[in-house]
Amino acid sequence: MSIKEVPSPIDLRNPEDAVQWAKEVNLKRPWRAQFFDYYAELIQQHQMIDILDIGAGPGDLAKHLLARCPDIRYHAFDFSEAMHKLSRSKLPAHELDRADYIVGDFKQLDWADTLQQYDLVIIHQALHELRNKAYAQDFHSTVKNKLLKAGAIYLVCDHLFADGAMTNHELYMSKQEHLDNLQQAGFEIAIPMEIRGLCLFQCH
């Protein structure tokens, strides 16, 4: 079956587009910080060390976690060197020393082959960058089979296809579709947070 991808309105590998996206994202959704607080608390509670952030973006989450979790090693995976550059610019030297930046495209079949295993894997507001929800189950299976240490946690936070939220049903999933995809990939799932159409799935 041929999968029709939804084109992106911007190119996040372009430095100008990356800067514009970074300027707008927290203005549009200031409640993102509440999710970041939850991630930091979870890391501290479980004494996690190796953290992988998939689709890491311009460094808001990097800054948040490295400032609050002094023992972590943060690994940023993104297809945009422009985003990595923005992220590095936000970190002082002592935090940058604990950060690792990896350029890679999770739409490629072998995207995870050069990565290690982690205590926590996060994908925050980036799952829809698969550009069609039909790819999601295979993506989750790759995370489960290749990237998680024993007892690790996988956090998936993305926009929902729902009333008052996102309207493109090829790109975004309903809550039940997220649950179905994650269950079919072999995860047990909880939903610890949902704010204005942004929903967090915590997977084991």
Results as ranks from 00 to 15, higher is better:
3 I>S: 02
10 I>R: 08
10 I>E: 01
11 D>R: 00
18 A>C: 03
19 V>F: 02
22 A>K: 02
22 A>L: 09
25 V>N: 12
28 K>S: 12
28 K>D: 08
30 P>S: 13
30 P>N: 14
32 R>W: 07
33 A>N: 13
35 F>V: 03
41 E>S: 14
43 I>L: 08
46 H>D: 15
49 I>W: 10
51 I>Y: 07
52 L>R: 05
52 L>T: 03
54 I>T: 05
56 A>R: 03
56 A>S: 15
56 A>E: 09
61 L>G: 07
64 H>T: 02
65 L>Q: 05
67 A>N: 13
68 R>V: 02
68 R>A: 15
70 P>K: 05
71 D>F: 03
73 R>F: 09
73 R>Q: 12
74 Y>E: 04
75 H>I: 06
78 D>F: 04
80 S>P: 08
83 M>P: 11
85 K>E: 12
90 K>W: 12
92 P>W: 00
93 A>P: 10
93 A>K: 00
95 E>I: 11
98 R>V: 07
99 A>N: 00
100 D>P: 02
100 D>M: 01
101 Y>I: 05
102 I>Q: 11
103 V>E: 07
103 V>C: 10
104 G>L: 08
105 D>Q: 02
107 K>Q: 14
110 D>G: 00
111 W>E: 06
114 T>K: 11
115 L>Q: 01
117 Q>S: 15
117 Q>G: 11
124 H>L: 13
125 Q>N: 14
127 L>T: 14
127 L>W: 06
128 H>R: 05
129 E>P: 00
130 L>D: 05
131 R>K: 11
131 R>P: 04
135 Y>E: 11
136 A>P: 08
139 F>C: 12
140 H>C: 13
140 H>Q: 10
142 T>H: 07
143 V>H: 07
146 K>T: 11
149 K>D: 09
149 K>S: 08
152 A>D: 09
152 A>W: 03
152 A>E: 01
153 I>K: 10
154 Y>P: 07
154 Y>T: 04
159 H>D: 09
161 F>N: 06
162 A>D: 07
169 H>P: 09
170 E>I: 05
170 E>C: 08
173 M>S: 14
175 K>T: 02
177 E>M: 08
184 Q>S: 15
185 A>P: 00
188 E>A: 14
191 I>D: 04
195 I>A: 03
198 L>G: 04
198 L>K: 06
203 C>H: 05
